[in-house]
Design a protein around this nucleic acid. Structure first.
Lengths: 197, 197
DNA sequence: TGACAAAGCGACCAGCGTTCGCTATAATAA
DNA sequence: TTATTATAGCGAACGCTGGTCGCTTTGTCA
């Protein structure tokens, strides 16, 4: 972009996206800390200090699209949870949606899982808040199932956490035995079989 | 240690342990990359460049005790696996042992889970090799159970991975519903219930 | 007593994220 | 048409970082 031209908010946002896309691959390949602002600037085709006109600092690049992604998963989950279906079916659909979202944004979630701890405590807290909401939704679903006599009397929070923690490894396993969706079905079967009466 | 005194191998090893202990807390509190060699040196009560007489570089501090820890878990697992017990009991005992080891070396394993990706590819490969052996052992156990007609015909590798991946989050959850051992029992119950006929 | 080995360290290096003041230029006002 | 203003973009500098090197100090041993 030549000098002197005033960018609209949309253009600025587009530029931010360009920078992020340029950084993402390198973040994933080499890690967040190991990727230098000089590299990002070069990939984005601009001077290093110009990056700071679009992002306050390096971390801001990392969290640029995180908020949006987490919000989307949470909203999709809420939508499914509101459907008039049995707890079991809703549980399955939410996990399938969640998996699909991670598969589609594989690089992004990889970054979050492995570099999320590098975010400022403020940003980490925000992310955890979202995770808690999600967790509590699944817990509520399991509680419903127990009340309806479909599920055994398991600890609903432990079960919810257990289920959530199986998703990420399915996508990023180094020795997949098939498509993530297939592996997830197998895991869901074991889990459901495990909590059903 | 004053100059001129020649250290025995044991003394050198003890010194290495001192340095590692000094670094460990800071690694966990601030992260591996964010902890400087200058800080570690200060905590260890020595000049920064003297650290390099005991560790080749920063990463060597990180992996100093990793090899040993992973080896121990693997050996313990092998020992349990050789006992004349049913696959289910052996599976349970191995996971319980694994959990206990992580609980007892909580800080260490936290570091491995969150900073392991920062190790050189060589060290990462070694760690993964160990993980594969462990995984295959559990897979074999599940296969045995299937052959003996105790377990349903689940995908043994997927089930093994699923089980392994539930352990770490139990120890490091930010909202525990009780002792890790209790949570793990609940998870083991769900899992066993899930794969049993 | 002199030569040697080794523990320890200060000074330095290249590279890092970030800041700041400057330049160039399109849009606007007079 | 000319002067002013706003801003996109950048080069140079700053205080950090992990790591290296050559020197000093001191116990040991021939």
């Amino acid at each position: 972009m030549p000098k002197g031209i005033v960018l609209t908010t949309d253009e600025q946002n587009h530029r931010r996206h360009e920078i992020f896309e340029a950084a993402l691959d390198t973040f994933i390949e080499k890690g967040f800390v190991e990727t230098s602002m000089r590299e990002i600037a070069e990939l984005a085709g601009m001077g290093k200090s110009s990056l700071y006109d679009y992002f306050g600092n390096k971390e801001d690049i990392l969290i640029f699209v995180m908020e949006e992604a987490l919000e989307n998963v949470l909203n999709n989950a809420r939508r499914i949870n509101a459907l008039p279906l049995s707890p079991e079916v809703r549980l399955r659909q939410i996990i399938e949606m969640h998996l699909e979202y991670i598969v589609e944004n594989k690089k992004l979630f990889y970054l979050f899982s492995y570099e999320g701890r590098r975010m400022s405590s403020e940003n980490q807290q925000r992310a955890q808040q979202g995770r808690y909401m999600y967790q509590d939704m699944l817990r509520g679903l399991i509680e419903q199932g127990i009340q309806q006599g479909i599920f055994r009397e398991v600890d609903p929070l432990v079960a919810a956490r257990m289920l959530i923690n199986t998703i990420i490894p399915v996508v990023y396993t180094s020795r997949p035995t098939g498509a993530p969706q297939v592996m997830m079905q197998e895991i869901l079967d074991i889990f459901m079989n495990g909590i059903q009466k």
